[in-house]
Amino acid sequence: MQAQAAPRVSWTLILFLVVLHLFLRLTLGYGHSAPDLFVVALLLATREVSLGTGSLLGLLLGILEDGFSVVSFGAHAFSFSVLGLVSGRIRDIFVGDSAIFMAAYFFLGKFLRDLLYWIAVGDLARDPFIDIFLPDALLAATYVGLVGVGVSMVSETTSRRV
């Protein structure tokens, strides 16, 4: 019988990432200069929680992000809830703890989230695909990948101490 691995992510960390995301992007106004910590928080959480909880968490984070969307309200909610659902489904397929795996996990998660948002946002508010995804989305996904690896390493270290 295989032993159940101890959870490595705490709700405190998820809450901290959410608050930090809003603080950096909204309060300090860094915008895209700050990494998308909502994605990091969601992808970390969905590795530990059920499919429904992950998707619901994505929905809530998306609604928060939608607070300033005048013409495309719901686009963030859609992209985050689908990301929560997808990452909850694939975590059983992609099992691994190496830094490269984690970087790829966060990179693909962020890219998928941007792609879903681009699809959902509507023709009026949508910039051309090339303008958004080459190289902006790739850079943003790489940024999230690096930050995600750092956060997950810190999270794992903290959980070991506890």
Partner: peptide, 27 residues
Amino acid sequence: YRPIQKRERSGQSKFFALSSVFFSLLL
């Protein structure tokens, strides 16, 4: 450190997940 609850696998969970996506589409 307060660990997140362990995952559970149930039809109810899938229902919540699909409901979340449906609700986001509604918005």
